[in-house]
Design a protein around this nucleic acid. Structure first.
Lengths: 251, 251
DNA sequence: CGTGTTTATCGTCAAAGAGACGACTATGAT
DNA sequence: ATCATAGTCGTCTCTTTGACGATAAACACG
């Protein structure tokens, strides 16, 4: 493979650069937030952008996304089962390859979606560039002309990622990826409320999630960290799909 | 852009080849079938493969997929509204970029999913290579060791495409993409039955689809082409999402 | 200590939807 | 004329949802 690469003939096929971009979402203070980094060089110098980078010659697309995620946030990604202390859900989102999306060259970007619990670090990083959690309401809510523009087509990628997250928590158990290892039903409900931007009835929500087999498993303890009556603590169960789904209200 | 491409420096980023591969599905004789082409050259010479090809330097990913679809089948693709006499639904599926997926070089393939009505031509083409509609039951049903292997990782791509189609007709009106412009409720039901591989109750199905606003619009006529009592003809309505969804039985 | 506030949890009721299935209709085949 | 086939309308029951009352267990305040 490496040998063949060195014999690569540029006239045989059009050369592309391939990158991964990450839509990293979390819930902070009742708000869905996305991770942005500030670009230090042209093009779009000084603009906020999604974290990402080139795919290396010997790594797969998921590996590249996982590596970028670890570099930016310290999160270990897992696509399904394997539990790690600080873990995030990671999945491929879509691929963006408009010929003029990068003015320098032909770049195809394989966007990935990561869902992470609220991180203790207020400004994630380790990187020299600035980084911040930006509420998606500020990034996507206002009319396109009024909001701060993101680099490249990252506003489109972000919008696709947010929509994927919003629809996926309907029929999968992925909302638990936004929660710490142990959480209460109320905390899970606030995740749904933040991602969807709606208010849910606490009683019906409680009935629904505790009645869905495999969604939640009681972990024994209780907590009072939200105030009020102590709530039972749960961990994510093995279920990945919710059947029947949790439907978004006001359809 | 073109100027910048000619100044491209191979040392600046790893060069990749980018292709599109197509999972083209249709329903023929109560069976979900996928379009395959026979490879005329190495690697995997003589194997059956998904249709596809290189993305050209000046075309987008969707454009490339649409062009390949037209070359292989004569279908004009439309991603949503625009009605064309012979049209198919086309959407991006996922991107496959394992470093060793092509022994010749590093290739990233952006797979697309196309859903088409049954075509009059038994063997589609125009291409010199052989082409056929293969029942997915034969391609994916048997144990992996027993079935005829497809080229590259195309069995994986096909499986992902089939699963996408199966789940997408649950909550969207996409099943109509498998039907001709005018169709009966029974014909639509047979599409669901073929894609899911189950039997559905004709009475409940009829109630469900005719009761979902915007799914079907009566087109006036009736037909008796299926035998039995004449059935009312419908065209696809404007609805794209089904709420509540059509649930797969036996979950 | 009592009272109010907050959050969690259980229960009830009506409406909507799904699954099972009976009954009737309109065509072609024999 | 009778049968087979496919389409369409209804009915009944069970499950699920959405709305909301009621109770429980903590903390904050006077």
């Amino acid at each position: 493979m490496i040998d063949l690469m060195s014999r690569y003939d540029p006239s045989a096929f059009p050369p592309f650069a391939v990158t991964v971009d990450l839509v990293v979402l979390t819930v902070r203070e009742h708000e869905l937030c996305a991770l942005l980094v500030r670009r230090g060089e042209p093009p779009f110098q000084g603009y906020w952008a999604l974290p990402g980078g080139f795919v290396r010659p010997d790594e797969g697309l998921g590996e590249a996304a996982s590596r970028e995620l670890a570099e930016e946030t310290g999160l270990r990604a897992h696509t399904s089962g394997g539990q790690i202390a600080v873990g995030a859900h990671l999945e491929q989102l879509a691929t963006y390859g408009h010929p003029q999306r990068d003015p320098r060259m032909r770049v195809v970007s394989v966007a990935h979606l990561a869902l992470a619990p609220d991180l203790p670090t207020p400004k994630p990083g380790g990187d020299a560039r600035g980084a911040r959690w930006a509420p998606v309401r500020e990034l996507l809510g206002p009319a396109e002309a009024d909001r701060e523009p993101l680099a490249f087509d990252h506003a489109l990628i972000l919008a696709d990622g947010v929509e994927r997250a919003r629809s996926k928590i309907e029929y999968s158990a992925l909302a638990t990826a936004f929660c710490p290892e142990e959480f209460t039903v109320g905390e899970l409900r606030r995740v749904y409320e933040a991602v969807w931007g709606v208010a849910l009835d606490p009683r019906n929500f409680h009935r629904k999630v505790t009645g869905t087999p495999g969604f939640l498993v009681p972990s024994g303890g209780t907590t009072t960290r939200q105030g009020g009556r102590p709530a039972q603590l749960f961990a994510a169960g093995g279920a990945t799909v919710l059947n029947p789904p949790m439907l978004r209200p006001e359809s």
